[in-house]
Design a binder for these strands. Sequence first.
DNA 1: GAGCACTGC
Length: 710
Amino acid sequence: MQQGLPIRPFKATILETVAQNEFSIIIGETGSGKTTQVAQAALSVARRVAEEMDTDVGAEVGYSVRFDERTSARTRIVYLTDGTLLREMLDNPELDAYSVIVLDEAHERSLNTDVLFGVLKGLVKSRKKPLKLVLTSATLDAEKFSAYFDGCPVLHIPGRQYSVQVAFSEENHEKDYAAAAVDAALDLHLHQPPGDILIFLTGQAEIDKAVKQLTEEVAAMPEGACPDLLILPLYAAMPLELQTRVFTPPPEGCRRLIVATNIAETSITVDGVVYVVDPGVVKQKSYNPATGMETLAITAISRVQATQRAGRAGRTRNGKCYRLYTQKYFERDMPAETLPEIQRTSMLTAVLFLKSLPLDIDVLAFDYLDHPGRPALEDALRQLYILGAIDVDGHITGMGRRMAALPVEPSVARTLIAAAELHCLPDALTVAAMLSAETIFSGNRGPQQVLRGDEGKGKQSALPDSARAALGQMLKEGLGDHILLLRLYQAWEQQSFSPKWCREMRLDARGMNFAREVRRQLTDLVKRADFLPDKELAVQGKSSKRKRDDSDGGQTTDALRRAVLIGFANRLARRMSQHNGYKTLNEHSTLAQLHPSTAPLASDEYGLTPDYLIYTSLVATARVFLSKVCPMEPEWVQCILPKLWDIDVKRLSGGATTEIAVVQAEQAAHAPEGTVKKGAYVVLPRKNDVSSVDAARARYLARRGSRPLK
DNA sequence: GAGCACTGC
């Protein structure tokens, strides 16, 4: 511990508390200068601590993050991300290399840390070799955490925060919060003494619009009416070099106005901010386990978040926070805490992880800090059963263990295992890696928009002829997104991973490089996990060496698509007989359309798209959409269908009849209101009634005779 | 014919 830090006088107390207790909670302000990414933070923290201890990173102090590990036999302290620790537990469930585990930033309540809470709490009690758990947090419901960890002691360490004066609005701005935020910022700029301003908005489009508006307003002001103003947008999707502009101090006498997403709430700390404008909303993802549908909706923040945002004004000196909602709203209506991620996300991966620990965990009765809810767990169990990861009694299978060992979502893991058997593993590795990188095309576009040159609202940019030809050729194949992702990677590899080629093709360099790293990691893992005898892997060779139009007559992609079908059997959809809408083949069948960002699918002479396809996600925005799809041959699907109908969830969940009171989770199970237009989608009451669809289709075709649709 | 917040094994 360094001299002069606020925590210094507490050293003895902390050491004594940790020594005498299995669990300890330390509440205090986090240090300044947190870096942008968690992995980078782990790395830089390791470096800083190594420096303070006068050692090298990797000697006494090491780190372990995805794609990079630096530890040695001499390492005493290792910094790692929550995901890395979970991975480590799969190989070493006792974690016997560690005697004390510190969970930093526990208040952030990521899915991973919540899983760690439960698992580590159990481990502290069961492990023969003593283990201590320390939680550190900025703000958190200390009583709740302490109660969960057997009434453990809570230490409060005063921070270095300056005071922040909070002002509420006279009225609420549910609808016009963005405009109100712009007005507030301009007002601050005109009437308040020097100091940077930080506005929280919910997304890129909103921020770009606000920045444009602010720029115009300021330009229209008479010369000398106000000081110089530098307006800086800030969101995760923008290039890193633009993000880092906020770390450069402004010129003398110039005020900065930072218009940011939630990234400025915790991930990026901007020094110099004195005024915060908080509209009280955030864009948040949630998942409905009943339909398997995701929504990304503008949601009210919690009082904890509002406090965190206000705190951003007090980093360098006393500041002010302007809340665009009333004090009454804040006190009476605003949620006290943010719904933890575990209560608004799919539990698929987490359940597979818990099941693969050698503890025979009953995931319904597991000791969660906040229970994810029965519907979310049953949804996960059902999907894991379809993928063969658990048996009818809910026990993990050998397949499940092999899946859990791969750092990709269960469907992708299952695809890889199937691909090994179907002799198309190298290509499947490529698809898996490309699916891991969520942004492939720059500017949040799909392949068809890129080909057309759409750059968003009205803007067009001519694609170079060579790129247009190459992309057009790929899209002609008509086999959907997975195969297109394969073709893009293969072409990029052919171009020696050229960044210039990426730019020409409008591919996102960050996403593509990430995919390349993931592919490398996965390739390593499947080799070690003995997916295939070495000989076989050598025979299958590298994906790119095979030419697209080779002599195998499409068998390459057939095998790959079959592997994808096996992996994504939990996300199968069937086209309606008379139009191009699809019905998902899950518990609560939902009608959905192909998202305009999907790669084109070959259609028949009536313009109808394939009878069956798998999708990677079902998202409700303006309507319900299937995104990232892969078409399937009906005869392949027939083998899969029986397993989908015949699921006994009671048995999967260990025949549990215990009632679990989960009030919050019940709320989480329902997507926030206001995101989906009423009547924009239909939840069909009948389950998976294929025969009636067949019959309807037959009647329709008979009526229509051979008359083409168009 | 839509539009993705934030993480990171």
